[in-house]
């Protein structure tokens, strides 16, 4: 009998291997994020954009939409030649699919987050008081995003209105997470180590709750 963790690992490995050959999802997400950061900065103006609370907010909003782009592309690939059915028809397929996508998309989003972060810091000439705390907040925040996004995309994968539904479903649920991530990064930029760690800790708690809920219901919901 193959363990659930092993199956999740197999799905994640399959996904990352396919991504390596066809990085169009990651490239699209990076381009989208960089463009969104640039646009947001131009709209509010550089002075406002450089604010320690505004810059992280712009960043996380852009990363959230980049997460939707890359997750949607991941599931679009599953629909080509009915690859999704191949997994769902196997014992434990639905459960493992969610976990596997979580892991692989968190890794892909990590890359997107780094590129987006570099673009924003260069664009806005941001000063970072606590780079270690900043990195921690970005890692946790990025890893936490797929839990909700993957579930929403999976639930709507065969619906025509998916492009509209996913943001509507994801944004309200992710609001606490976006608030925590924004404040964690803002505190790191401003040099408030205690606040940055506190917000990062809250982010971990929120992420664990969402991931646990997702792992619990995703299999049944997808089936």
């Amino acid at each position: 009998m193959v363990s659930g963790l092993r199956r999740i690992g197999l799905i994640a490995g399959r996904e990352l291997r396919a991504d390596a050959r066809h990085p169009d999802g990651a490239v699209a997400a990076m381009t989208f994020m960089a463009a969104l950061v640039l646009l947001e900065s131009l709209i509010v103006g550089p002075q406002v954009a450089r604010d320690t609370l505004v810059a992280p907010a712009l960043y996380w909003i852009a990363l959230l939409f980049a997460a939707i782009v890359v997750t949607t592309r991941s599931f679009d690939r599953e629909l080509e030649d009915d690859a999704l059915d191949g997994v769902l028809a196997m014992p434990g397929g639905a459960d493992a699919l969610y976990g596997g996508k979580l892991v692989s998309l968190a890794a892909t989003l990590g890359l997107v987050a780094v590129v987006g972060g570099v673009v924003e810091m260069a664009l806005l000439d941001l000063a970072v008081a606590l780079p270690g705390h900043l990195a921690l907040a970005v890692v946790i925040g990025t890893a936490a995003l797929p839990a909700v996004v993957v579930l929403d995309v999976a639930l709507t994968v065969r619906l025509r209105a998916r492009a509209v539904l996913v943001p509507i479903l994801a944004l309200p649920v992710l609001l606490p997470q976006l608030v925590a991530a924004t404040n964690a990064v803002a505190a790191a930029l401003a040099g408030d180590a205690v606040a940055s760690l506190a917000w990062s800790g809250l982010l971990v708690a929120i992420a664990l709750v969402y991931a646990t809920l997702g792992l619990t219901i995703a299999g049944t919901a997808i089936e």
Binding site: A18, R77, D82
Partner: peptide, 10 residues
């Protein structure tokens, strides 16, 4: 199934 169920990229 009717379609191969194979993931593109593999």
């Amino acid at each position: 199934g009717h379609r191969p169920q194979l993931l593109h990229g593999l």
